[in-house]
Simulated scan of single mutants.
Amino acid sequence: MIDESIVRQEILKIEPYVPGKPIEEVKRELGLEEVIKLASNENPLGPAPQAIKKMKEAAKQVNIYPDGNVHYLRQKLAAKVGVREEELIFGNGSDELLALLAQTFITEQAEVIIAGTTFSEYRFATNIMGGKIVSVPLKDYAHDLEAMAAAITPNTKLIFICNPNNPTGTIVTKEEVDNFLKQVPDDVLVIFDEAYYEYVDNPAYPETVNYLANHENIIILRTFSKAYALAGLRIGYGIANQKLIDYIDRVRQPFNVNLMAQKAAIASLEAEEHLAKSVELNQSGKEYLYQEFDKLGLEYLPTSSNFILVDLAQDSAWVFQELMERGIIIRNMESFGYQDKIRVTVGLPEENQVFITQLKEVLNN
């Protein structure tokens, strides 16, 4: 009889990631024809036309392995970000990069500091390698960098800072980061996860690339999944000094970034007007949703990302279910420990309007 003794004990600590429900699954389950998904922080505008064109062209070449060194995207991105090509690493989404970081640096019982409420994959990556999570509560829904610095011990190996933070949309400022880094030993790695970097318009937000010259222990993660709208292709990248990149590259699988993703990412970097349009759409959508939440008397966190954490002041599970039965998929925050909150992705104007209309009806029932 097979039991849990056959698996690594670290596996038993892992809780599988719970993604937002896919549109097709909701259609099947509830027999719906039309479904709007505002759950997974995807760009509702979709990929740039140039990226779609390159994907179609690349489809004719998928019988051939992709460039394992990601040469042309590496060139293009290095020039755009302002780093050397050797300071970049690419992954099958940022999730793979998180796994690579864990495999490279986390040893059994090594301590990893994370915020109390943040992206769950940090916990997953740490647990799978037998590391020890040190969870520091948020302060005013944002990372408490002073408390995180105070939590550092001789066993600390990594610190994850999600900026903007998922699911709160809050940021840590340059001033806060400057003070924090002064307290971090050189042998403790600080990972800034900046998945929503392109959406940030707060002037206090730190440009972390500028820290690399004087801080060899910093790793920056970014992605093409959000503002660039390539979530389905799975492509993210890391920025760090060459020594760290070389270490991480040793555990990277060959051909981990597919051909179509590489071509689409290059085209997306060139499509600056489409990115600007995506950011503008997100900003106007946030303003509309803020106004409507104010009218409904709902508290929410102003966000530096493309999602909003909303306090319903009541159990959110039934609201989530009611909205889904009406063809609106949002994110129930129970798994984050917020029983009375939902997270909603900013959609197209018409999607935002439908969401608000249905939310009003649900709350008035």
Rank of each mutant, 00 (worst) to 15 (best):
D315H: 06
E194M: 13
L281M: 14
I152E: 06
L301V: 08
P137I: 04
Y122K: 03
G116L: 10
E57Y: 06
N165E: 13
I161E: 06
L312D: 05
V188C: 10
I2F: 12
G93T: 08
G347A: 01
H71D: 12
A149M: 05
A213H: 10
F307Q: 02
A142G: 07
Y196I: 05
Q358H: 14
I342W: 01
N179M: 07
K157F: 03
Y122R: 09
K76F: 08
E86P: 08
N202V: 01
K76Y: 07
T118I: 11
L363M: 10
T118Y: 06
F90Q: 02
I248C: 08
Q253V: 04
V136K: 02
Y205E: 01
L312Y: 03
A149C: 11
A79C: 01
I218Y: 06
A265S: 12
L138W: 02
Q242G: 02
G130M: 10
V209F: 12
L73K: 01
V184I: 15
I248V: 14
I239V: 15
F90K: 01
A317W: 07
R331A: 12
P22A: 09
G20T: 04
E175A: 13
I36R: 12
V177M: 13
G285R: 00
E96Y: 07
I248Y: 03
K80W: 10
S335F: 15
P185F: 09
V70S: 00
E216C: 07
V112C: 11
I308F: 07
E207F: 07
L189C: 02
E42G: 03
S284Q: 14
E4A: 09
Y197H: 15
A267N: 04
D3M: 09
I113C: 03
E87Q: 15
V209M: 04
S304I: 00
I219P: 08
I6K: 12
G31A: 05
S335L: 12
A195H: 10
E4L: 12
F124Q: 13
G238A: 13
E42F: 13
I248R: 00
Y338N: 05
A231Q: 10
K139P: 02
M260L: 09
G232M: 01
M1C: 09
K56R: 13
V310N: 05
A125V: 11
I235D: 03
A313N: 14
V136D: 06
K53N: 02
R28I: 04
Y199D: 03
S278R: 00
G68F: 05
S5K: 15
K132T: 14
E4N: 11
A48H: 02
I248D: 02
Q353E: 15
D178A: 09
N163H: 03
F192E: 08
S335A: 13
L77T: 03
V209N: 10
A231R: 13
